[in-house]
Design a protein around this nucleic acid. Structure first.
Lengths: 191, 191
DNA sequence: CTATAAAATTGACCATGGTCACTTTTAGAC
DNA sequence: GTCTAAAAGTGACCATGGTCAATTTTATAG
């Protein structure tokens, strides 16, 4: 008749997350194996899947949490005064998002919630950076084209950031860094 | 001592591709199973993997070929005279790319070649639509901002097209069609 | 304290992509 | 024709994510 979540549930979940974090710190996201996580956490395989829908749901949690941390730090900083400033502010985000091809892929795949009722951690961060960009483009410190709705401006920044990061994984464009590619995009978009 | 590709290689490859196409036509890309392909093609599983690096390499071939066909048809059409025109021209491409979540994911993942020497079919189509957009923005029929390099304009169109398609899979934005979302982006970007 | 039903956990088992040592086929050299 | 080395093909086997009927644990009613 108990409808509450038992204390051990939280404990098990914490053990799984902690094990996963340790393993990732050591070998990265892509190399993570469910088998290793449950072994390290000291639970059965089935337990993993009663806590996370699948392996990627765990990734959504972990990667989403990290992205959110980074965005929160960026939010705390000053409003950029130019495209170049903006690129500099976004550097930590870009660095993490492109740290592994796998991380970038998961981020893209989870950027849109499949249903409003189930907005996952990564999808949350997309709302978060949309809000951040909205704040920036409506701040007088950042001069932008005023013929374009701020909502559209914000979505555009997002689009260009993703494009610049995508090209990072493409041999044809690998000569330039993500930041070097992003700046001209933003320059053109903002003005 | 033979260094040439044997005739049977081409035959086997054709059988595999044909089997895969049939299965996909019936049940879509995501539902494709390597087991079914080799069964239908009448070859062993190992043969599949000596023709394609992995299952996704086959998808790269099939999806890339379809995308290229569509782009070639678009190329044959007239240069769009406005953002709205451009969206209309791109509709077939968008329809296929967003026909399945899986197709869109593969397209994004293979959009950048890992190495210049191995530009796959999907990566080719990104070059192809870059060329197409370049042709469009440099054509006098399509009025655009002349303060921005055509190369940048073309990359921007690409970025917005992908953004609009991404949002299609997001419940938060599902009220509008891809085309309805894309048009204001392009309007803002071109002018 | 005991009964009991829901919650949580278990691990054998399954699905499917992918590997590789071995066999068969093929294209020339003689 | 026959020999031979490379190319092509085979299928048992592996790796890993994911399932589910059965079991254990927990909270609470009485």
């Amino acid at each position: 008749m108990a409808k509450t979540v038992q204390a051990r549930t939280l404990k098990t979940r914490a053990k799984l997350l902690s094990a996963a974090k340790d393993l990732i710190e050591h070998s990265g996201y892509e190399a993570l194996r469910v088998e290793e996580v449950v072994l390290k956490a000291g639970v059965a395989k089935g337990t993993f899947f009663s806590h996370f829908k699948d392996k990627e749901a765990l990734m959504d949690q972990l990667i989403g949490a990290r992205l959110s941390e980074i965005l929160t730090e960026i939010e705390a900083g000053p409003v950029p005064r130019s495209a170049s400033d903006m690129v500099a502010a976004l550097t930590p985000f870009i660095a993490f998002a492109t740290s592994e091809r796998y991380v970038f892929d998961i981020m893209l795949r989870y950027s849109g919630a499949a249903a409003i009722s189930e907005i996952g951690p990564i999808a949350q961060t997309f709302l978060q950076h949309y809000e951040l960009f909205l704040k920036w483009v409506t701040d007088p410190a950042l001069p932008t084209r005023d013929t374009i709705a701020p909502e559209l401006m914000a979505e555009g920044i997002s689009a260009f950031m993703i494009q610049a990061m995508s090209l990072n994984f493409c041999a044809l464009h690998s000569s330039a860094s993500v930041e070097e590619r992003l700046e001209p995009y933003l320059e053109a978009w903002l003005n």
